[in-house]
Amino acid sequence: MSLDSSTASVNAPVGASSHPLPTKGAGMSKHAFTLTCSLAVLAVVLAAWQWVPGWLGTPEYIWPKFTSVVTEGFRMWHDGNLLEHFGYTALEVVLGFILGAMLGLFVGVVLGLSPTTESILSPYILALQIAPKVAFAPLFVMWMGYTIYPKILVGILIVFFPIMINVLSAIRTVDPDMVNLVRTLNASRWQIFRLVEFPSSLPALFSGLRIGSTLAVIGVTVGELVGGNKGLGFLLVDSEGQGNTAGVFVAIFGLTVIGIVAYALVVWAERRCLHYVPKVNTTTV
């Protein structure tokens, strides 16, 4: 061993690793690699969509090529009021999601703070959840007609339960030592909830919101399929009735975009609100 290497070993900090620390550039390269692989998968899927139906001799009315779907999308954009239907469904999803989330948060907090209330109401809430939401859609249409309200109500019903369950479980599992500590400081019941119980439930709340953001699209679509004269669900049924398979794919793609945007907004809000939580304790995309 040379003198220079011995000196370097002596001057090295105790406990320092011999391996170089990862640099910011390495992290950026990993992110770029992940993005490249993801785009490559998308390219393969689109290429298969474009060429495989022709190789198998599948008729266009059964499985249209990707370029046919894109062409139909542009036609519907200019001639079929696609943007109007898209905006109508997006509005229903937003309203159903927000109202369902607020209702789920309120009921989850109430049941979490009061076990007696949970024992009284839980059988009825469970029965409401078990009943298929598709069965409620025709009933809501009979009550309120072909308006926006039946779709929003179905969205509320389908979003409510996962958020309520997540918040209820989080409230029940709050660290009792933290609650006792705040009580020793003469905190009121409201202060205990505001300073300890509600902040502790936020990670679970956002997990429920992630689920609810995707379920809201399903609920609204069900409402539009059963009784709608506007929206992407109506456009889907209308295209199906005309044998326009490419138009059905366009409607499905529009619904997917709405769901992705809603989910991304929840993730953005979660990162803004829970930036103080260690990464290991937060949900992942």
Rank of each mutant, 00 (worst) to 15 (best):
D4M: 12
S5V: 07
S5H: 05
A8I: 02
S9H: 08
V10R: 10
A16T: 06
S18C: 00
H19N: 09
H19M: 12
H19Q: 13
T23Y: 03
G25L: 12
A26W: 11
M28H: 08
S29M: 13
K30R: 15
T34Q: 13
L39P: 01
V44G: 10
L46P: 01
W49G: 10
Q50L: 07
W51Q: 06
W51S: 08
W55K: 10
P59I: 10
E60C: 02
E60F: 12
Y61F: 15
F66I: 06
S68H: 08
E72Q: 15
G73L: 05
R75A: 08
H78A: 10
L83Q: 12
L83H: 06
H85Y: 07
T89E: 09
A90H: 03
L91H: 08
F97P: 06
F97Y: 15
L99W: 02
G100P: 04
M102D: 02
L103Y: 00
L103E: 00
G104W: 03
G104P: 06
L105H: 03
L105Y: 06
G108Q: 02
V109C: 14
L111D: 03
G112T: 01
L113H: 02
T116K: 08
P123A: 11
I125F: 15
I125Y: 08
L128G: 15
L128R: 05
I130Q: 08
P132S: 14
K133R: 14
A137W: 06
P138W: 03
L139A: 15
F140A: 09
V141A: 12
M142H: 03
W143R: 11
M144E: 00
G145Q: 10
Y149S: 14
K151F: 07
I156G: 06
I156H: 07
I158F: 08
F160C: 12
F161K: 04
I163P: 03
M164G: 03
I165S: 13
I165H: 04
N166F: 05
N166I: 01
L168V: 00
L168Y: 13
I171S: 01
V174T: 11
D175P: 06
D175T: 03
P176A: 10
P176K: 11
D177G: 13
M178C: 05
N180C: 01
V182Q: 07
T184A: 08
L185Y: 12
N186W: 01
S188H: 03
S188Y: 04
Q191I: 00
I192F: 03
R194I: 04
V196L: 09
F198A: 11
F198G: 03
S200H: 15
A204L: 06
F206R: 05
R210M: 12
T214S: 15
L215C: 10
V217F: 09
G219N: 04
V222R: 09
G227H: 05
N229C: 00
K230L: 12
F234T: 01
F234E: 01
F234N: 09
S239H: 04
Q242G: 10
Q242H: 11
G243V: 04
T245V: 14
T245Y: 05
A246N: 01
G247P: 09
G247Q: 08
F249R: 02
I252Q: 03
F253E: 00
T256R: 00
G259W: 04
W268F: 14
W268L: 14
A269G: 03
A269Y: 02
R271Q: 13
L274E: 02
K279R: 14
V280G: 12
N281Q: 14
T283Y: 07
